[in-house]
Design a protein around this nucleic acid. Sequence first.
DNA 1: TTAATCATTCACCCATTCGTTAACGACTCT
DNA 2: AGAGTCGTTAACGAATGGGTGAATGATTAA
Lengths: 120, 120
Amino acid sequence: MATPSALDRTLSALADPTRRGVVDRLRQRPHPAGELAAAFDMSPPAMSRHLRVLRQTGLVEENIDADDARVRVYRLRPEPFAALRGWLDEVESFWEDQLGAFKAHAERTRGTKPPGGRKS
Amino acid sequence: MATPSALDRTLSALADPTRRGVVDRLRQRPHPAGELAAAFDMSPPAMSRHLRVLRQTGLVEENIDADDARVRVYRLRPEPFAALRGWLDEVESFWEDQLGAFKAHAERTRGTKPPGGRKS
DNA sequence: TTAATCATTCACCCATTCGTTAACGACTCT
DNA sequence: AGAGTCGTTAACGAATGGGTGAATGATTAA
């Protein structure tokens, strides 16, 4: 496949429960990698891989702790979320656009069995 | 695993380019399964599996065509998108909440390696 | 300098996922 | 009824993804 789009990578990253849990946790405050591994009861290598995925999609950024250069502190970045929102807005505009027509149409097609609209 | 959450399933479903392509295409109008398979140059069974995934997460609904009961017509459903938006709103509230403090903080921590701010 | 700590990458296993072809059930049409 | 069409499920191979423990690099502490 020809390099997945940014949206592909963002959605794939967020589809994993652990990674979405990390995102939720980072909403509170930045966290060191070790804390995250412990919080999710997971080996450091496993968490490191998750963090790399999140980093590669730009969902988080890594910083070296000022007081101890061994620890990497992770925090959220807004851009990919904004992009996801943009796509979601587009999709949802479907219902707004067609609201009037849709409502009228829904009246007639409610359920699985539409009324007789047409014939051969 | 303890049955993935609805959000897990929604995000996993949308992470696949083909399935997201189907969603984009269904924004225009409902489509029969066969049209979708052809549009993505994919065997009917493959598309059928994608459609099942989308159906199981509630992203699409299946209806029997009124004029030919062999064809299944697929259309978008709004609920899972609304749920996704709800989570996204929560996450993004992070920046709104902390906007003032964040901006001030960002002044001091901009970039990964601050120039000579502290120490020797 | 030597030992300990934080986090990464590496090599490997197991489970899931996406695609294919073949077979099947349901419906349409002559 | 019989042939043809639409879409599904079934069975299988290839690729992907997430987990582990071992080894590596970098930094701190004794």
